[in-house]
Design a protein around this nucleic acid. Structure first.
Lengths: 156, 156
DNA sequence: CCTCGGACGATATAATGTATCTCTCTGCGG
DNA sequence: CCGCAGAGAGATACATTATATCGTCCGAGG
């Protein structure tokens, strides 16, 4: 897994460079922390972890890095949790499309175990686009976060 | 408009009573403030307004009332804005269904003027249910918030 | 060399949300 | 009438999330 994360980081750095942005050591470190987390992580949890290697880290340190990573489509914010997760599709490469910054995606959030799964369902995206269009609304992006029980928790 | 709000409040009180809950004067006052607001209102904006008539009001005062109103399906929370709006369908009467607490709904949020429109699109709801089912996910509710330009702002 | 802009450090503060404890009111059984 | 249980609400403190502001460093380009 550690190797995988490093590979994703390298890939992310290359993707940023292609767009004229820089995945600086700090930003890379924050991205690593997000990717290494088991699920969605809060900004202050990241800050605590970041402080282990960067004593001077403060809230803006983390938020600036997170903003950058969001813009680059490398992470997503889970609005219902005020937390962040790595983008499941970032390794496959894509840039600021569909969501203003990022690709169309949806989250399935388990209320029992907290597991958060990213999906990218075309039917949902299309249905929303159609509904918005019907209202004369020009769609730039959407937050779609489902709550319920994941397959594992639903069985138990 | 004032008459309309009062009518909605009376209707809401009746709906609560039917479910064995009470729309107390405090809760009614908070609901009134939400309904009178032009768009989504933050909890602390409500608190400030509430203090005009209830000097002792504190954060828990507002949050408890908001929690109650959410449970009763009389208001919704807009996660992207950390703000609250009256439920567009509450006047027509419905109770905690589809969303864990509330009916399935979606928001269209204008990034220019902040206008927030509630819609209830069956195709979106169904597409999301289908996608969740495919992942073995038991859906309880969903937050669907689109961002873009409302019809008015898109024209200008 | 200069200076300009982006990234980052550092401090402070704002905004949002909870925990907890107490008090009061109300209805109800003794 | 008394006292009790439970909901609603007051009050303080705290926790969490997010932003504002200012200063410094450093590399790119003139």
């Amino acid at each position: 897994m550690a190797r995988t994360v490093e590979a994703v980081l390298d890939h992310a750095a290359a993707a940023c460079a292609r767009r004229g942005a820089q995945l600086t050591p700090l930003r890379r470190e924050v991205l690593r922390l997000v990717l290494e987390a088991e699920g969605p992580v809060g900004a202050y949890a990241l800050l605590d972890r970041l402080k282990e290697t960067r004593a001077g880290a403060a809230p803006p340190t983390v938020y600036r890095a997170l903003d950058f990573l969001l813009e680059q489509g490398l992470i997503h914010k889970v609005e219902r949790l005020n937390a962040f997760v790595g983008c499941a599709e970032a390794p496959h490469g894509h840039a600021g499309a569909g969501d203003g910054h990022g690709h169309p995606h949806q989250f399935l959030i388990c209320r029992r175990c907290g597991a958060t799964t990213e999906i990218s369902d075309a039917a949902v995206t299309q249905a929303l686009a159609a509904a918005a269009g019907r209202a004369g609304f020009v769609l730039h992006g959407a937050t779609v976060e489902a709550e319920g029980l994941c397959a594992r928790c639903a069985q138990g």
